[in-house]
């Protein structure tokens, strides 16, 4: 049975510990001297008016339902995995044009030493085998989740990074 998955963050639970980012590098054998890590962890403090806001975030590909990077790629390198609906890629014909980066409103696509695009693929092979993505498995607080888009809400919408960014995403072309 094919499913529609995405990876989402419960921002109320994230403590910016970085376990997800480390697990991802390990899982993907990433040489971070050459390639930017797929998962980005932030601990951001901001003065806003009178108060201070704190953001604890872990951001990698959001596996958008209507993914702008897919529409933008001139070589059709980026696609939806039919089994999981995760945003996967085959960069055999990638020309390194950076159009996917210009299309992605999260700033996700990165590039390897060969100039070809790389990013989080949702650990779709693990998911095919009933496993959780490496970052999700490593998250000690349960903030990072593989969510079934057709199942019940697992994260309260006000805390869900996916929900919070839907309006923003709908404006991207």
């Amino acid at each position: 049975m094919s499913k529609r998955y995405a990876i989402d963050l419960d921002v109320s639970k994230c403590v910016s510990c970085g376990a997800c980012a480390v697990a991802c590098m390990d899982q993907n054998d990433l040489n971070v001297k050459q390639t930017r890590p797929f998962r980005n962890v932030f601990d951001m403090e901001r003065q806003e008016g009178e108060g201070t806001t704190y953001s604890h975030l872990s951001l990698a590909c959001m596996h958008c339902v209507d993914a702008p990077c897919i529409v933008g790629c001139p070589s059709a390198c980026i696609q939806k995995d039919p089994e999981t609906n995760l945003t996967v890629f085959d960069t055999t014909n990638c020309i390194g044009c950076h159009s996917c980066a210009m299309a992605c409103p999260y700033g996700v696509p990165g590039f390897g030493p060969d100039g070809k695009m790389v990013k989080c693929d949702g650990c779709y092979v693990r998911v095919h085998h009933g496993l959780k993505p490496a970052c999700v498995k490593a998250c000690p607080t349960g903030a990072l989740r593989l969510i079934d888009l057709d199942g019940p809400e697992e994260i309260a919408p006000e805390n869900s990074l996916r929900h919070r960014s839907m309006e923003m995403l709908s404006k991207q072309v």
Binding site: L59, G107, K171
Partner: peptide, 23 residues
């Protein structure tokens, strides 16, 4: 680009924290 598009759509000018952090 997303920021420009949101402004053209009449939304107020502020970047969500995840976009700010990535920038």
């Amino acid at each position: 680009k997303n920021y420009m598009l949101r402004l053209f759509a009449g939304e107020g000018g502020s970047l969500p924290d995840y976009q700010r952090a990535m920038l």
